[in-house]
Design a protein around this nucleic acid. Sequence first.
DNA 1: GAAAGTGTGTAGTGTTTAGGAAACATGACG
DNA 2: CGTCATGTTTCCTAAACACTACACACTTTC
Lengths: 117, 117
Amino acid sequence: MTQFGTYVNTARRSLQEHDRRYSLRQVAKRIGVEPGYLSKIERGQVAPPSEAATVRLAKELDQDPDVLLALGGKVSSDLQEVIRKRPRLFAQLIRELRDAPDHAVLRIVREVRDGDW
Amino acid sequence: MTQFGTYVNTARRSLQEHDRRYSLRQVAKRIGVEPGYLSKIERGQVAPPSEAATVRLAKELDQDPDVLLALGGKVSSDLQEVIRKRPRLFAQLIRELRDAPDHAVLRIVREVRDGDW
DNA sequence: GAAAGTGTGTAGTGTTTAGGAAACATGACG
DNA sequence: CGTCATGTTTCCTAAACACTACACACTTTC
């Protein structure tokens, strides 16, 4: 489960190369956590942070929040809310799509976006 | 948030009418919790139980686990896992479908089930 | 009228979550 | 050399989560 830490560390260090405002300390300060805590996160010494902190971190590092949340073993609470409002419907849909190939899911996304209902 | 308790209590009492094996105590015993705890759950005196206990309770009362989980403010972890495996894809899909009417979502479910990819 | 079964109230428990505070070691800079 | 800034380590904790244990009062059953 140190996937999360490695990912964050890599992303941050790649930004740090060109911009020294991306030191661990400065990033920690901007996202509102203690440096020691972020250090432990990057090194997988503690569990991934809360949803809120994860999202702040993702934005700070210019990463997709949903991806970083996933690495942290979480699912965005706004997605959960959508499911909880119509549990039968969405549970069925998601289970149906579990093994569908990416392009099939994407096709559906496009269909829906083009609003043909 | 006493939606959960009321729902459980109603479901159980309706079964209890015809079958006295559905007393609070016996149901509690079968799903593996203390009677006092189930009592508090039904009356909303404590937060809804864990996912595992919720699912056992739903099955015992012949209810849809996803619906009961939703009432408890949760989303089944197997659904979360599906999302976490392809976060960008599923996040996009679900957000796109947030305001879609039921019948539109259902149509998609049927399309997918009929496996036309 | 005892035994068994019903639901409820009070109190307390172990575990997990989500961090904070402060000190430490290292290297770069002026 | 002193002082920044960097990342790291150790120790600690407040709150939430998910329950258990047990005694109580009442009702039904035998």
